[in-house]
Each structure stands twice: as C-alpha cells, then as structure tokens.
Design a protein around this nucleic acid. Structure first.
Lengths: 369, 369
DNA sequence: CTGTTAGCGCCTTCAG
DNA sequence: CTGAAGGCGCTAACAG
C-alpha cells in the first residue's frame, strides 16, 4: 500500500539502515550511495513515517509553543519568531525541519498543564512557554513536577517572557523586564508633570500584571506620590490587588480593548481630575483612548495615555501611543534557538530582556499643573 | 525507565489490550475494570506514547493549520478558532484532545508544499489550509497531487478562506466572498459621490487579491467609471496586474502597513485629485491613513478610506474604518469542526461565507463632487 | 562506510 | 467483555 523505507532500500539496493542514515544525514554515507538512495526516494515519492521514527528514536521533531491567545499579536509575533527559529535548517539538509505546535491556553493554568501532557505524549523535542505565569503556589508546584517529567523524557524547556522558575528543569529563561517598563512609563508621566495618574491593570494573578504594576508604583513612590499605608516598606504588598489608594486610582481587567474602555469609565468616575492613564498594554490603551474620545476628552490635551508592548498597530493609533517596546520578535527568535540547542543558554540559565521607552504623541504635560 | 502501557496493565491486573481499550474509549469495557485501569494510570502517572500509538493506528492526533503569517490577526483569529474546534472533546473522555500544528508559510508556495509533506509525515488527522491561494498552474497541480497523497493516507483536508479546488481531494471548502466585499465597498464609495477612487491591491498572484480587486472594478464598471479597454468584455483580464487606467489608479503591494503608506504616496502623485482610496485590507488601510495624515490630508474630509476584514483594531482606528466584515472566527470554527468530522460538509463540498459592509467614520461624501 | 539484528510501545485482529 | 499474539516502520547498536 504505502511505500516504506524498505521499499526504498530495495530499489536503491542498499539496506534499510543505510536509507535511514542518508535521510537523517547524521552519519557518514558514500556520496554515490546517497545519490542512489535519494533518487529512489524521489522516484517512489517516499515520505518518512514520523511516528515510526519517533517511536524508534524516542523523540519527535515537534516543538510545542504555549501561548495565552494566538489571536493576540503579542503572542502571534512571538510564536511566529519561535517558529522561524525552529524551522531553520540545522543539519545541512533534510533533517532539520521541525514542526511548531502552537497551543492556546487562554491563560488557563489547567490547560497549560494539559497541553504540556499532550506535548509529553508526543515526545516533543522542545517546548517554549510564553507569556506571564499564573501566580499560584499549587500551580507552580504542578508545573515544576510536569517540567521535570518532560526533562526526563528529553524535552528541552524554554521560558520566554516569564520569570525564572527556581528549581524547575528549564534549559533557559528569557524574562521581560516588565517592572522597569512600568517604571519608565510612570517616570515619563511624572516627569511631564502629572500627579494624578490612573492605572488599568491586566488580569489578576499573573506575573506580568504584577510586575508592570509594581514598576509603576515604584516610580510613583519615588516621586512621593504614593504614601505607603502604615507599616508597608516600599514595595506593594504582592497579594494586594491593584485598587484605589492615595488618590492614585487603579482597576483590574483583562488584556483586551473593552476592559480598557470599562476601566476608564470607572477611573474617571472615581477621580475626575485624573490627567493621565497608564494601561497594562497597548490593546487596553486603545480601549482607554476610545472611552476618552467618547466622553469628549482629547488625548493628550486633556489626558495622557500610555500603553505597553509596542505592538505593530500602536504607531498608527491616533494619537500614536507612547509605550514601552518589548522586543517580542527577538526574544522569540532567541527562545526558539535556545530550544533547538542552537544557542548557548545565558549564564545562570536565565537572562532579562531589556525593554525601551518609546515616547510618541499620546503623552504631554497636563494642562493645569 | 519510562512507564509503559504494560506497566499499567500489570498494576491493574489486566492485559495490555484492555488498558489500550479504556484509554481509547472506543470499545466496551466493564466499568469496574475501567476504574481499576484508570486508577493504575493515575498512580503510575502514566502518559500514553503518542508516536507508538500513531504508528500502530497509522493516524495521529495532530491537526495541521496552514497560515500565511501567524503574527497577522487575520490568521491569528482563524487559527485560534480552528484550534478551539479541534480541541473540543469529541469522545466523552480522554480520547478527543487533538493538537493543532500551526505552520507559517509566509505566503510561499514552496513552503506550503513543504509543510504539507511534513504533516503527511506526521500522519496528521486533518489539515486546514487558510488564506488565499497562489495563482499558479504548476503550483495548483502540485498541491492537487499532494492533497491526493494526504487523502490516501486518511488525512481530512479543509480549505478555509480559499477558493474551491476542483478535482482535488478536499473534504470541504469554505471560501470568503471577497469579490462581493470589494464590490460593496466600491459601491458605497460611488454612492457617496466619489468618482476618482484609488485602489491599493494586495500581493500579486493571489486569489484574495484578485477577487477583492475584481469586485472593486465590477462596481466601478457598473457605475460607468471604468471604460474597458477595447475588446475587453467586462471582467478585468485576470493576468493583468492592477495598474493605472482610466483615471482609476491602483498599485500593488503586500498586506502590511508600509505597503499602504508607500502606495498612497504613489497614488497621490499619480492623481492628486483622488477623493477616496480603497485598501486591500485593514492593515493596509492604516498605512494609507498614516500617509494621508503625514501629508496634512484629513480622513474623511479630504479623502475617504476603506479597509477590508474588520480586524479587531479597525473599530479603534481614528477615524474608525469603514470596512467589510469577514467572519473569521465563525469560519475558523466551522473549518475546524469540518476537519474533525463534527460537521456535515456543505452540499457540493463547498460553501461561500458571506461578508458584510460595515460603514464607519472613514468614509464620507467628497467635498467637491 | 554498510549490512544485520533487535526491539521502540501500542493497536488490533482473532479466539475465548 | 477480555486475553494472546503479531506487526506497524524505523533506528540503533553491533559486526564486518
């Protein structure tokens, strides 16, 4: 029925092992022999049986990529870059081709685990986990255990845009400097003269949300705009969800436009004298701008708005968004190469990816300082 | 070392065959036995070996999704929807979980074929091919041959957002009514009073580009704005790349912002009296708006602009884009279900997905009619 | 450099 | 409803 490696061997008058060797290109084979084999492969229109070789070699050429939401460019860009990297021809010819399996977790911790199991089942060669992590001790423990299992089975695990997991079997970690980003944005606003700054945070219980928010507060605190509640020592209580305080309003939502819209309405109600709003990311910032526009407020004349991530559309927003650039493409590429063993892991196994403030038109000095 | 099905069998005091049966849930097994097996699986933390079962069953639980560019929300949304559909639990428990393999072709015909081969190698259960097709006889022939091979191997093929391929082994086709969309947009502009309309086409040699462009011309022709070159009979010569003609300017590019920007500069140079520009898609339209803005022209006061697709960001553009909504999410969901055999194929194997005109703020009557 | 020999771990008839 | 046996197609030591 279907043509197998043995058929090719017969036609090329060599042993199956030899065919396997030329196909995998990981073993010396005489040029003439190889040509003969390749010709036979071609004539027979032979396609290697992946499952069979994976079974025999106990590793597949699948690479998993875990993302929260593939429809979100933040993840789309990273996933594309990772895929680019894993698709790069490693061995001269024929062997390299890895296939990227993109798994949408929707931010659900359970699905994260489920997909990891599925990937383990496939004997994935590597898996790249992107995006912030859920902040939950039980989940972290479960993840650690699962990652150990994967490592045992020979799967290389790389974290991209997520904090290091001490004690977990991870080959490399690329974490984004979200905290600094949050700080830079807030410092920029403060430097412009803003004193009443609203904050629209991301989904609760995620490292990314927390770090951006903490960076933001750090800057406010440094500017004396944040009187810490009695007894607190500088850093915000990690478990405290962003909330109204000291005249600096904040609300929590998800990473989408409508959440930015709704939060803005709420923020303005709570403090009509706000002169700036910092959003958890660019998409949310778009929602913030929309809400402002709908209430007849102009950006940046009446209120300044900042985003985060510098997604492709941010430069085209009107006004163009002041934001923090996160090198998604670069990071994805590096993560992919790391996963493929094409790149040495950074010292200590983890590196922080720097972010950069991008000042555009959505921020300006407040009108009534 | 690694725990196998035999270990589970031993612990549950049943035969390997029985374990296999409960795991696949496709065979009657006594409830008590099943419980025992399931408990053993749990206690041993057993994970099925995918390659081994795929080899034995000669089919895997992988579903391929071919996209042009996963970082583009157009594809991201579709891919997400397809993945959602293929992840739906089919059989009551345990069996269903399919894994989506997203393959970025970058619009390259060769890579399209390469990925199909890779998917064939994996014995993918199904593959969903999204986005417009390259218009090239040789490539179409190669695709047809490759699809035949896939079908032979039991892979279900579904086309989503791509025209039917007569004679190819495709289970179902969902094509977008791009032509109508192009027509609606142009009719809208003409109805508003526009007479000099520029067009920024998508990448050359793709069905989507062609159809949107043809729809556009259709409307112009109907309004008598297009004097067909002598001898031509209504429809544009399929092989003719969009070009300047009869005062209706058009330029070709890719589906990105910068292409819209550059095209606009060119268009305006060619015909400074343009009162409207129709773009191949929303992203391109954003570039058009940016170019206009940079030249001090206002939308829609000075020029009207239209997009295509109605991607999430289009409503937040300033001004909000008049565009055509393509139900990407719905289509992706349907395609996924079709691929999984969860849905009956439409009569004749193919259906056209209707599109809808969405009038927003980027279009208005021209100032000097 | 090439052939031989064993499995890899599971599914699937076929009996019971 | 359950067990026994064979093989899916390929790779990985070993010899030569």
């Amino acid at each position: 029925m279907t043509v197998t490696l043995a058929d090719v061997a017969a036609r090329a008058r060599v042993s199956p092992a030899t065919v396997s060797r030329v196909l995998n290109g990981n073993y010396p084979v005489a040029a003439s022999t190889r040509d003969r084999v390749l010709r036979a492969v071609d004539e027979l229109d032979y396609v290697l049986n992946g499952p069979a070789s994976s079974l025999a070699a106990s590793t597949s050429d699948l690479v998993g990529i875990l993302v929260n939401d593939i429809a979100d460019p933040f993840f789309g860009v990273m996933a594309g870059a990772v895929q680019l990297a894993v698709g790069e021809d490693t061995s001269g010819r024929g062997g390299g081709e890895k296939l990227a399996v993109v798994c949408n977790t929707n931010g659900s911790p359970e699905r994260e685990l489920t997909y990891l199991t599925l990937l383990q089942r496939q004997r994935a060669a590597a898996v790249v986990i992107t995006g912030g992590a859920p902040e939950d001790a039980a989940h972290t423990a479960a993840m650690t255990a699962k990652l150990a299992r994967l490592a045992e089975a020979g799967t290389t695990v790389v974290l991209c845009g997520r904090p290091p997991m001490p004690g977990a079997s991870v080959a490399a970690t690329l974490s984004f400097d979200d905290r600094t980003g949050g700080r830079l944005l807030a410092e920029h606003l403060v430097g412009l003269g803003h004193r009443r700054i609203g904050y629209v945070a991301g989904p609760a219980g995620r490292t990314t949300t927390r770090q951006r928010w903490e960076g933001h507060r750090e800057a406010l605190a440094a500017a004396g705009l944040l009187t810490p509640p009695a007894g607190e020592s500088g850093t915000a209580d990690p478990s405290a969800a962003p909330a109204a305080e000291q005249g600096q309003a904040a609300v929590q939502g998800s990473y989408d436009r409508s959440s930015g819209y709704a939060a803005t309405v709420q923020l303005l109600e709570r403090d009509p004298d706000l002169t700036a709003i910092a959003a958890a990311n660019d998409t949310v910032a778009l929602g913030v701008c929309a809400a402002l526009r709908d209430r007849g407020l102009r950006v940046p004349e009446d209120l300044s708005v900042t985003g985060f991530d510098d997604l492709p559309f941010s430069v085209d927003a009107v006004p163009a968004l002041t934001t923090v650039r996160v090198p998604l493409q670069d990071a994805g590429l590096r993560a992919g190469r790391l996963a493929m063993g094409l790149l040495e892991p950074p010292p200590g196994g983890s590196a922080t990816v720097p972010v950069e403030l991008v000042v555009r038109a959505s921020t300006a000095a407040p009108r009534k300082p």
